[in-house]
Design a protein around this nucleic acid. Structure first.
Lengths: 346, 346
DNA sequence: CTGTTAGCGCCTTCAC
DNA sequence: GTGAAGGCGCTAACAG
């Protein structure tokens, strides 16, 4: 039942080499009629080359490994989607591994990817690529989507700090001073940068930016919800410096913002009237909250396309130097910040 | 730079066969001290077996292909997550392909999976597995998560029709008669079953179930939003039979329900007071809408675990007969149906 | 233009 | 308990 190249060769009355030449369109020319015979034999037999054997022989696997932290977070889900689609379009299979920010999983997946000889790696796991992993990486081309640039690893990332400033500034324009911050896990470089952006913008505006205005939480609805409860005084917790309630929240991710809105509602606080919210992400979900979120959007498709072209460049020419790219997002105005709804078309 | 088994053998002063025995714990015994020497050599050299070569030799790839239709839909995203996690825990790499309900993509991914000799396949692509694909499938063990049972393919699926009835019945208990239905693409078997469940439940309650109460839309926020606008008369469309507005919506998926809520808000209709909503899914997102969704939840973890054990059984013993399993979901009561909010814990 | 053939790295039967 | 060797299916260098 299993057809090998030898079967095709026999049926077409040629050698196996010729079959290879036909399939790979090279490296040697094949006479048109011979080619036709071979193609017919392939058709008739329903022959499919064995990708495993081909890979072993030294060809590439035409696959790349992709480490992503959390498919539940729509931000990462959309990124993953764009990556997968882009690479598939270019003939590469993307093998995705979810790390859930767990080092053990990250390491395990990385090993599997390398054992399977992926042609390249895209890392977006959010975990610092500590030196402990360096030795196992070998010389596979790597592209990082994390905010942490590493020597000899190309990277593309959002300019978290600038995006944070954009978000906070918008809230300031609405007149807010006491802008609290729902942050992601602080050990993640990207999250740290967002916090830094918030603080910088608040400082330059002479507005408070103390630690008591920050609540750290994981990037999930639940995380955003409990962080918001904390900051807005669910349990009547008075903030150390200011006994006023924050009038606005700068939230690290859309998904946390969804949780935060939910928490506000439970606390009886109206968004945006009593609490204004701006988040970072720009996922599709942001358009469907009540009220719609104001958020800073990253262009996933562009990131994926750029990632693909840079990684494939390095795969083709491993000697090419690695580059780093930082992208600023665009503010997408919803209503959670206090801006008026778009006038209805009716 | 690349270490092969021969290097290990040399360093340990044994033959390559012994190294194999040590690595695979068989099929021949190895003397304890020899084993120790080999293990040390492996350590020292940082040797990793080449999974490609191993697969070619005839071992398995320890990978399974997974076809999922749409990672943007949290329902499928959560399913995918559970599948990935479960199989990784069992030592299998899951290679996920997104089909977006496109036959061409489905076929292409399937081919790639087979060319790469995955040990098994999990299909959740939502597309009818037409006979056109049968020939390329060969004899790989397959488990389908689609609602359509196929001969010789094991399947696990939600009892869509029963779940739909559960949802509709809950709305009926709230006193609703004119319950419109936001349906998914009707060519998908699962969607058809949901519609059937809605109709059956309405009929048995002597409530209207005509086609004018159905709006078909893709499973996305946008789809749910426009379908809701249609049904609730955004453009003042009067329904053919009833000039009253439906008082409730039975929605095929959580993500559509999110869009529907958003549309209601834009139409100035309050949920649940003017429009009650119940959906199918039970995703995490359902808990964070305003108001929280009432939805029928499927147990993703259980489905994944069962899928894994059944597929792996078939991989180990290809002769074993295929079975079909249908699971009913549980109603998770939120507030979108009209039920009162849980009393606050404060 | 086409055929022959030597491996890629691994597993496993067979001999010792 | 250990070693030698064939072969999985494919590619590409080398001959013709």
């Amino acid at each position: 039942m299993k057809i090998t190249r030898l079967d095709v060769a026999r049926k077409a009355g040629v050698s196996t080499a010729v079959v290879s030449y036909v399939i790979n369109k090279g490296p040697r020319p094949v006479a048109p009629d011979t080619r036709a015979r071979v193609e017919k034999a392939i058709q008739d037999l329903g022959y499919r080359p064995n990708a495993i054997a081909s890979a072993l022989r030294g060809g590439s696997t035409h696959s790349i490994g992709f480490l992503t932290p959390n498919p539940r977070d729509p931000f990462h889900a959309q990124m993953a989607e764009a990556i997968e689609r882009t690479f598939l379009g270019l003939g590469y299979l993307v093998i995705t591994g979810n790390t859930y920010y767990a080092r053990a999983r990250e390491e395990r997946l990385l090993r599997t990817f390398l054992d399977r000889k992926v042609d390249g790696l895209i890392l977006n796991s959010g975990i610092t690529l500590a030196s402990s992993l360096a030795p196992i990486l070998g010389d596979v081309p790597i592209l990082s989507l994390d905010a942490e640039p590493m020597p000899d690893i190309a990277s593309i990332s959002a300019d978290e700090s600038a995006d944070a400033a954009t978000a906070v500034e918008h809230l300031q324009r609405h007149g807010h001073r006491l802008i609290a911050h729902i942050a992601g896990p602080p050990h993640l470089r990207g999250e740290e940068l967002k916090t830094r952006g918030w603080r910088g913008q608040q400082d330059s505006h002479h507005s408070p930016s103390g630690d008591e205005l920050i609540a750290y939480a994981e990037s999930s609805e639940e995380g955003g919800s409990s962080a918001a409860s904390l900051l807005l005084g669910a349990r009547g917790r008075p903030t150390a410096l200011h006994d006023e309630r924050p009038t606005a929240l700068f939230v690290s991710s859309d998904v946390q913002a969804i949780g935060a809105i939910s928490a506000c509602r439970q606390l009886g606080l109206r968004v945006p009237h009593e609490v204004a919210i701006v988040s970072l992400g720009g996922t599709r979900a942001a358009g469907y909250t009540q009220p719609p979120l104001t958020t800073v959007r990253q262009d996933f498709e562009f990131i994926a396309a750029t990632a693909a072209s840079r990684l494939l460049d390095r795969i083709r020419d491993p000697g090419s130097s690695s580059s780093d790219l930082m992208l600023t997002g665009n503010l997408v105005v919803g209503e959670s910040c206090g801006c008026p709804p778009p006038t209805s078309p009716y």
